[in-house]
Design a protein around this nucleic acid. Structure first.
Lengths: 259, 259
DNA sequence: GGAAATCAACTGGTCTGACCAGTCGACTGG
DNA sequence: CCAGTCGACTGGTCAGACCAGTTGATTTCC
């Protein structure tokens, strides 16, 4: 191996706040500071790291932006460790979309891929427990839908939990995490545009039917059908809301002849 | 619609630095501050926003962490606007992995899904230009491989450009961006463990062959085959390096009967 | 004795003012 | 015309102060 010019590399200055943030992040990611535990107070960190308070605060700001910690004025226990969350993921995705680097259509198509693959893998690798969790959420959705109080919040929470159960069954948490992040990014982009557009109870009805079909496909191990159902549902739901010029992307993604 | 209790929602305090950061981010994402343009100096922002310098600095720190701006001491022009970059995406993914929320196996499996879907869509939607770009990179890889100088850096750059070309052809930039982010996260996790392990020139040889096959499948519109090739290559390359207990995940992902 | 009001000791959020090392452009001396 | 100097910036850091809010112990009042 010829050590041509890789021997010396440009040295980049490391700011004090970076060293502080990195040390704390290391402790959190390694598990030394589990979620729920508390960081020392800012003024305490100042003496421990031997830096100024502004430096500590910039470090904490970075960690907070990354969703690793949360701080609240007046809390005598110090900042709370949250652990790793997909928040920063969805934030990054939402930025990509809002800056029009990625269109809404791409976002939805991306989620179609993610959901379809989650469903496919879940159909293959699920356990009885996984199926029970999914069934529970569908039952809950049904109760909420029947009561007609229009409690959409609880309904979409059950929906989220269903998807989480599928992601767990798939064995790949990344798929579920990313799907959730994409979903949040989509919501952040179109927001109210959909919110009250359609008749809520009719929509809930359809949603429940769809979830039942997915559960059926997964529990019977029909991977291709589970995947296709995931894609179709998203297409049906979002196709009318994406930019016309990207709709063909969705169409290409939904009509997958391989399954 | 029953406005039960959604009428009033808990009000959450908005910090001064958040308002500052949000205003600047808005200008960047909207295009008012295109990449390459400059922000006013910190002390200038202080008077414009009418806040303290620490507040301005925390706001800039947040934006810098998100990869939206870059600042350098002494620069009389102020912080440089970078525009939206996928850096924060890969950073978020890398954190998920390092915290062992996502295992290496999941990461690789995730990339299998991403690459396979990129290839699949590229096989359907490619243009002649796309194909030319891919061919260019393969040619470049071949020249680099033949010269046997072992310039791995340039080789992997050509590899990255090939994948970017595929992502562009697929019409979904998100797929490529995420794949790249995952790739960086994987590299960050196993790093040298692979670097000099195998014979470099033999590996380049195989890599070139694989890329030729993918290009062939894409240009002939054979979507299922393109997808399968993408999965298999990753499996072949990484299977030995993931944790044994997650290898079955990879196996489940690679042997997709649907294509 | 027990519930309610009070208070002191914190917390994080913000501001001010200062100093440093580095960068850059203009000025200056050859 | 070029090299060196110098001063006016920059961002990075620190110290110290004040504020509003939370908290828990203390005191007050029924």
């Amino acid at each position: 191996m010829a050590p041509d010019d890789d021997l010396f590399q440009p040295v980049k200055p490391v700011r004090a706040y970076q060293r502080v943030a990195q040390q704390i992040e290391e402790r959190i990611l390694s598990g030394d500071l589990p979620p729920g535990s508390r960081l020392p107070a800012e003024r305490e960190l100042v003496v421990r790291f031997d830096v100024g308070r502004s430096t500590v605060r910039e470090a904490l700001r970075v960690l907070q932006t990354a969703g690793l910690i949360r701080s609240r004025p007046g809390d005598p226990l110090g900042a709370e460790v949250l652990g790793v969350s997909p928040d920063s993921l969805s934030q990054a995705l939402s930025r990509l979309t809002r800056s029009r680097i990625a269109s809404l259509g791409e976002l939805v198509q991306f989620r179609m891929v993610l959901d379809a693959e989650s469903n496919r893998l879940a159909a293959r690798l699920h356990t009885a427990d996984d199926l029970a969790r999914m069934r529970d959420q569908i039952d809950r959705m049904e109760r909420l839908g029947a009561s007609s109080t229009g409690n959409l919040h609880a309904f979409s929470e059950a929906d989220a939990l269903f998807h989480r159960a599928v992601a767990e069954a798939s064995g790949n948490s990344l798929l579920g995490l990313c799907a959730r992040a994409v979903h949040e990014a989509v919501v952040g982009v179109i927001e109210e545009k959909i919110a009250g557009a359609a008749d809520a109870s009719a929509w809930m009805e359809r949603s429940i039917t769809h979830h039942r079909q997915v559960l059926d496909a997964i529990s019977s191990g029909d991977a291709p059908r589970a995947a296709r159902l995931g894609r179709e549902a998203l297409y049906e739901y979002y196709a009318d809301h994406v930019e016309p010029e990207t709709r063909r992307l969705l169409a290409a993604a939904v009509e997958d002849p391989s399954d």
